[in-house]
Design a protein around this nucleic acid. Structure first.
Length: 952
RNA sequence: GGGCGGGUAGCUCAGCUGGUUAGAGCGGCGGUCUUACACACCGUAGGUCGCAGGUUCGAAUCCUGUCCUGCCCACCA
């Protein structure tokens, strides 16, 4: 039966879904043990587990490049270790994303004309669940599309029953240990979402603003006044004091007296506190404990009242003069300033750069607001984490005594970032005033205010339901995320999964999440399991565009992974820019129109993954442009074609007959493969993913395709059955290992090629070593180096490569077309030169398009020369070109060699070098000089001779 | 204010435990429809390694200072 034709290109659109389905059908991504502990794969069930948990993407999210990068990295690791025999498990899941999700559904309700507050808590939550059940798995689908090898049977959601249970257990446990408390504190308040935010949810950026200098008259002498500087004049209604520095002589006599709060006409004390900085502003600062975290502390120290002047939505409340009530904070500010101006109490206004905190979600400036919130006391948890990572507290702070202990960060430098945060930790506000999330398991007595905290509804509440009400707040989303490594495996139950797969192996994530999530997971691991949740943390760089600007939705400069997989029209390419409306919108649009006037043709998941991995460096950014993905596509195509050449040869080879032994070039290819295997393994071990791709690329493109494949063509196309089978055995086996090495990065195309390569190799029985252990490449093994490195073999082969290159250079130099077969004369200098060239005459003739090679003692007059360390090459140029051209070329060559020689000589002229450098380096330099001198001499001789021949 | 990353060919980056002539990919240029691949093949040009000092026989690589750039942290009223 004739084999099926080999397609010209990899049809990823057709193949990707088909292959995905095949992986699912064969359940290759499932761990060796099922969650109930039963064994699915007896061999792997005894192997060491390799476990990764996905950082659960938000259910509201769509896959962006950051996910694509992170999930590709995780897939590379998971697939690699699965193939390397480990019991690999990658647990997928999603995050309920409290505020984000509620906002999405709120918008939906708004569109329907429904006010969610009127709809009520229960109905709103129902609507959110409906939304989540309909759209919440979209991102999971996208993960499948890019080839992620997650164990989908273990998919989790942070609001699942089990995870909810874990959250309640964690809360109660910490509460009982005194690590959760409730208190009135200044929190970051988002007036749009009307909820508290943790410090980490606030983005601070310098913005242009104003500094207002306000006059506060003295009670004792209303004609005199103190000038306070503020950027938030509208909070003055909540002022309860003004403070000066205790050592500030300008104001010393006023301390203890009163100032009059303008507009309110209330006396407020003038106090001395070190918070007031004499260098800043006027040295006098207004104290507003309910609206500023520092003032709050000053207030505590001086036992001052806290006057909250705002409502939840940042409008002014009834504590302010009637005219201001209900006004938005910024409207009130304007009005207030006008009034102060009129009353002569506004001394001056200056431009001022200030850091404004904005909600990471609504982007609106946060308000500092005094309210009752729940907090986790972080210091004891941080201390535990520091100790677990080998730190001890000394007089100089925390010092790492055992660098191998605890979690290893990659790149290493993030260890210090982590340390710094832990050593300066602040308490974590965990309550949020929204509905979508894990409700706080606390009940308040309506009259006494007593608080009961319990995993389930407490008996006393059940007995007297009217007397109690459950806390209205829900927990910060991260309060469920930090339990992820435990909760996905069923904690607090003691489950087989927890026993076998916890702690996990590697956590891979973006570095901006190190505080939000990584550190807190460590805390939770130690607090609830007494173990850290993973051994390694890999932090990938952030994705930036071609200009080095971080990709983000709001900047409109992102690349949608689906564009790469499905393609995009010009309009589709422009859409994110038009939606974001950034300030450089026109420029971005112009760039797109110029580069992709006809849209962007899909390149497929493999090309995307390849480009991502190839682009990874340890730097701050991974810079990507859409065009970079075309390079990935080229690589996939190259692999496809090179593999296709071997596969088609295998498929038309009749079965039976022994292969010839390995040739020198076969052994060279195997040596190059070994070296690539070492690089890939080392890249995995050191989390240097870029290195993996950078090792594979030249191996596939140069070593395999350009040299091995080309060299073997005479054997492949010849009539010598044994030689042909020998070549097929070597090429087929190396290709198989190459596909294995590539598979973690480009799973689809390798799986597709495997499906034709493996059966053909099996049929012919040409495997160099063991037959594959699986039908699917994804379940096969990862190769190990076969032999020790052999530098001499590589050196011998390099002579052959240089020999061919030398002829190609001559051809290019003199425009001798490939169709003109030439005969070269060859004088070997290195003992291996002659056998290398003569041993594969056919191949060399094919590569260099030669008529023949003649070994000679020396050159004849009038012949062009290529000098190499290990051979000389002569060509009777007169037959092909004007000799004057060759003289000119030699002049250039001589100049270059002269430079080389003087550099080498200068080194040896330096007595310091000769005396102080290690002897082997000196000898090396001497050998080098001798070699260059001889080469130069010959160049000069042949130049003189040729010049004569040309002239005569 | 403190800390971190980066500044090497037109672009994106390797190299940086100091030692032959600083590399790759893309792009450029010239050539080739050579029977796997024009998403290819062959050849080729292009760099005072941010700047200034220092250590050394020898510095892209180590040290000091400095400039540019990106990021993180911190109580800038």
């Amino acid at each position: 039966m004739a084999p099926a034709p080999f397609p010209k290109r990899f049809d990823f659109r057709e193949a990707e879904p088909r292959i995905s389905q095949r992986w699912l059908d064969d359940r290759v991504f499932e761990a060796a043990r099922a969650p109930d502990g039963s064994v699915r794969d007896p061999v792997r069930a005894e192997a060491e587990p390799f476990v990764i948990l996905i950082p659960p993407p938000n259910i509201t999210g769509r896959l962006h490049m950051g996910h694509a990068l992170n999930d590709t990295v995780q897939d590379v690791l998971t697939r690699f270790f699965r193939m390397d025999g480990r019991d690999a498990l990658w647990v997928p899941g999603t995050d309920h994303a409290g505020i984000a999700t509620q906002t999405v559904v709120k918008k939906q309700l708004d569109a329907e004309g429904i006010d969610y507050r009127e709809l009520g808590r229960e109905k709103t939550i129902e609507r959110i669940w409906e939304w989540r059940n309909k759209y919440g798995d979209a991102i999971i689908e996208q993960l499948r599309k890019i080839g992620c090898s997650c164990d989908w049977s273990r998919t989790r959601f942070t609001m699942d029953d089990g995870l909810n249970r874990a959250v309640r257990r964690a809360f109660v446990s910490l509460y009982e240990r005194g690590l959760i408390y409730r208190g009135k504190r200044i929190v970051n308040w988002c007036p749009v979402d009307r909820t508290a935010l943790s410090d980490d949810e606030v983005e601070k950026e310098d913005e242009k603003g104003k500094m207002y200098h306000l006059r506060y008259p003295l009670e004792s002498d209303p004609n005199r006044h103190l000038v306070v500087a503020t950027t938030r004049p509208e909070t003055m209604f909540g002022d309860v004091a003004v403070a000066v520095h205790p050592d500030d002589d300008r104001y010393r006599d006023l301390v203890g007296k009163n100032a009059i709060l303008p507009l309110m006409n209330e006396p407020i004390p003038i106090i001395a506190d070190t918070h007031a900085d004499p260098e800043k502003g006027t040295g006098v600062v207004k104290i507003t404990p309910a609206h500023d975290p520092n003032d709050f502390e000053v207030g505590q120290r001086h036992d001052l009242p806290q006057v909250d002047v705002m409502n939840e939505d940042a409008t002014l409340n009834d504590r302010v003069p009637v005219a201001y009530r209900g006004l938005d904070r910024y409207v009130a500010r304007k009005k207030l300033l006008e009034q102060l101006e009129e009353e002569g109490l506004l001394e001056k206004v200056e431009d001022h750069i200030l850091a404004i905190g904005r909600s990471y979600r609504s982007k609106v400036p946060i308000e500092f607001r005094l309210s009752d919130q729940w907090f986790v006391k972080m210091e004891p948890l941080a201390r535990q984490a520091l100790e677990a990572n080998g730190y001890e507290e000394t007089e100089d702070g925390w010092v790492r005594k055992d660098p191998s202990a605890g979690v290893a960060f990659h790149p290493e430098r993030f260890e210090r970032v982590y340390l710094h945060w832990l050593a300066n930790i602040r308490d974590w506000c965990i309550s949020r005033q929204i509905w979508w999330g894990h409700r706080i398991p606390a009940w308040h007595h309506r009259e006494t205010g007593e608080i009961l905290v319990s995993e389930e509804v407490p008996d006393r509440v059940q007995q007297e339901p009217e007397a109690w009400s459950q806390d209205e707040d829900v927990l910060d989303t991260w309060f469920s995320s930090w339990l992820w490594p435990l909760s996905v495996f069923g904690w607090p139950e003691s489950t087989p999964d927890l026993e076998r797969y916890y702690p996990t192996s590697v956590l891979s994530t973006a570095k901006d999440i190190i505080f939000f999530w990584v550190a807190r997971m460590n805390f939770a691991g130690l607090a609830f399991s007494e173990r850290l949740p993973y051994r390694h943390v890999y932090l990938h760089s952030t994705i930036a565009d071609e200009r080095g600007v971080t990709m983000s939705k709001s900047k409109g400069n992102g690349i949608d992974p689906l564009t790469l997989i499905e393609g995009a029209t010009l309009d589709e390419l422009k859409r994110p820019v038009l939606e974001a409306r950034p300030s450089n919108m026109k420029e971005l649009l112009r760039r797109i129109e110029k580069n992709f006037p006809d849209g962007f043709e899909a390149v497929g998941a493999d090309a995307m993954r390849w480009t991502l991995v190839y682009s990874i460096t340890e730097g701050e950014h991974v810079r990507l442009a859409l065009s970079r993905f075309l390079e990935g596509r080229s690589f996939v195509t190259k692999l496809w074609n090179g593999a296709g050449r071997v596969i088609t040869a295998l498929e038309r080879e009749p079965a039976g007959g022994d292969p010839a032994p390995l040739t020198e070039e076969d052994r060279w290819l195997l040596a190059r493969l070994d070296s690539t295997i070492r690089d890939v393994r080392s890249g995995i071990d050191t989390f240097d993913f870029g290195r993996i791709a950078h090792a594979l690329y030249p191996f596939v493109w140069n070593d395999f395709c350009s040299w091995a494949l080309e060299l073997s063509k005479p054997r492949l196309d010849g009539d010598d059955d044994a030689a042909r089978r020998g070549a097929l055995r070597a090429l087929g086996s190396v290709l198989a290992d190459t596909l294995r090495l590539l598979h973690p990065v480009v799973p689809f195309v390798t799986e597709e090629l495997w499906s034709r390569l493996a059966p053909a190799m099996n049929r012919l029985g040409l495997w160099l070593d063991d037959v594959p252990q699986a039908d699917l490449l994804a379940a096969d093994r990862m190769p190990k180096p076969r032999t020790a490195p052999d530098p001499e073999l590589e050196a011998r082969f390099a002579i052959l490569q240089r020999f061919v290159s030398a002829i190609r250079q001559l051809r290019a130099q003199y425009r001798i077309k490939d169709s003109e077969r030439i005969t070269v004369h060859f004088k070997p200098l290195h003992p291996a030169a002659q056998p290398m060239v003569e041993g594969r005459q056919d191949a060399v003739k094919f590569l260099a398009k030669l008529e023949g090679v003649e070994v000679v003692e020396g050159r004849s007059a009038g012949m062009a020369v290529q000098y190499d360390r290990d051979f000389e090459l002569y060509l009777d140029l007169g037959r092909y070109i004007d000799l004057n051209d060759e003289v000119a070329r030699l002049d250039k060559d001589i100049a270059k060699t002269e430079k080389e020689m003087s550099a080498a000589a200068a080194k040896l002229d330096n007595p310091n070098f000769v005396n102080k450098a290690p002897p082997d380096k000196v000898q090396q330099a001497r050998d080098k000089l001798t070699e260059v001198e001889q080469r130069l001499k010959k160049l000069r001789e042949s130049r003189a001779e040729l010049a004569e021949a040309a002239g005569g």
